[in-house]
Nucleic acid binder design. Sequence first.
DNA 1: AATATATCAGGAACTCTGTCTCGATAAAAA
DNA 2: TTTTTATCGAGACAGAGTTCCTGATATATT
Lengths: 222, 222
Amino acid sequence: MRAESVPEPTLRRLPSYYHYLVRLREKGQEMISAAQIGEDLGVHHTQVRKDLAFTGSQGRPKVGHHVADLVASIETFLNWNNATDAFLVGAGHLGTALLGYAGFERAGVKIVAAFDTRPSIIGKKIRGVSVLPLEKLPDLARRMHISIGILTVPAEAAQDVADLMIASGIQAIWNFAPTVPDVPNGVIVENVALYSSLGVLSHKLAVHRRAALAASSGPKPA
Amino acid sequence: MRAESVPEPTLRRLPSYYHYLVRLREKGQEMISAAQIGEDLGVHHTQVRKDLAFTGSQGRPKVGHHVADLVASIETFLNWNNATDAFLVGAGHLGTALLGYAGFERAGVKIVAAFDTRPSIIGKKIRGVSVLPLEKLPDLARRMHISIGILTVPAEAAQDVADLMIASGIQAIWNFAPTVPDVPNGVIVENVALYSSLGVLSHKLAVHRRAALAASSGPKPA
DNA sequence: AATATATCAGGAACTCTGTCTCGATAAAAA
DNA sequence: TTTTTATCGAGACAGAGTTCCTGATATATT
Ligand SMILES: NC(=O)c1ccc[n+]([C@@H]2O[C@H](COP(=O)([O-])OP(=O)(O)OC[C@H]3O[C@@H](n4cnc5c(N)ncnc54)[C@H](O)[C@@H]3O)[C@@H](O)[C@H]2O)c1
Ligand SMILES: NC(=O)c1ccc[n+]([C@@H]2O[C@H](COP(=O)([O-])OP(=O)(O)OC[C@H]3O[C@@H](n4cnc5c(N)ncnc54)[C@H](O)[C@@H]3O)[C@@H](O)[C@H]2O)c1
């Protein structure tokens, strides 16, 4: 019960620290301060400390944190040290990009099979992963104890596929379709909603331009 | 100055409403209540009302909001009614998926050209968009007044490409690389950080399993 | 050995976001 | 026409999440 009380923003920032720290480690740097992490990643330094505290890692005054320890702490905390097997449904454009992307395996997810309904790709391998007919999903998911499903089908098919995944014992869905699937209590859904960052981008850009325009055509006094 | 005070969570939810409403409109539904939107999208109904209020749309008691009006209000508010031209750099796996994805054009962004350094794809067309050598970006970006850059290159190259984009007059960067580019003040950056949702997913799944395990091996009394 | 400094850690204060409550209003029903 | 009901909108409240502040501590400097 206690462990669930980790702020979601913290869970979203940790992967970002993780990547940063891995690159640092590759460069041979041994120690790092929270202040430096914060500056490079655009996060307040006290925030960085609080986030890292959740992973159980301790820093030392004057020298900071041990990079390798931090990496290990985050891995353990997020359960990224032994990747969980996942199925991907919808081996289209986006699905193909995700299949075989090395980054995910490091982030706790290993795509072991893909499923689709399109006859022309069934039986083929995409970036080393076999594409199987959707009908085989329920049986295989149960036998292989798959708990993560990645959803990259068109919006119209998303709900049906989500239902099928859940009926097959899948507990967590990583959804890339622009709809929110309706799932029973207890099933975890992470909606990626790529276009939602376009909401922020477009609006900020519009405001930015409006401000630039206002500034050029005579700034208003306070 | 006033218009900038829109909560970012609101900006992230609006696209989700938008997609939902467009589908509703296609099905022929004319009116919709905030309560219904909230239920279908997993957002509190008062939250939906507050978000929609930012767009300027007004609802009517007992009947709700006019679907078509809402769609138009959100489009206008997010500046999605006339798509802004964008350049994409890094026509690899992810870049290819993004190129030619119809959804973005509706979301205010039109990819008009792609750039890469890989000779084997330069000069080709990917899903209707030409891939050009990176060297041509600065000149073209200036001449075409491009303000949005989409970054889909490996992490190592991200900073250099971001610098080049900014030097070429690009004001907003949609970054898919797992690093946070360092940009001068005034430049807008939206980091997608796909793996960050894996932080949430992995951790929730781990907690979920721990809870299930604890429940099966004897629940603790309060 | 004493002092200075960089950094950490934990609690307090503040800000932002989301939820709850209430009165108003338009349509439908009696 | 009056009453009922579904819905809206605005303000009050509550809960997170972030930033600020203070004190502690390990290393470096004098
Ligand atoms: N391509 C992008 O850049 C992008 C960006 C954001 C979101 N998305 C979303 O991701 C999803 C996939 O996009 P895409 O561009 O890869 O589309 P796509 O058409 O290229 O691929 C969809 C795949 O799903 C398969 N499919 C369709 N119905 C299915 C079903 N019932 N069961 C199993 N497989 C089925 C199709 O055969 C196809 O292979 C869509 O929901 C889209 O909105 C895509
Ligand atoms: N593929 C995915 O599913 C996925 C998921 C999350 C994040 N990402 C991130 O997106 C980025 C791209 O991933 P990808 O899988 O498409 O990689 P990729 O290797 O398939 O594509 C990268 C492309 O960028 C080009 N490139 C390299 N250096 C360049 C430079 N300096 N200028 C211009 N172009 C350059 C390459 O030629 C290649 O075409 C990476 O940062 C990756 O971490 C990818």
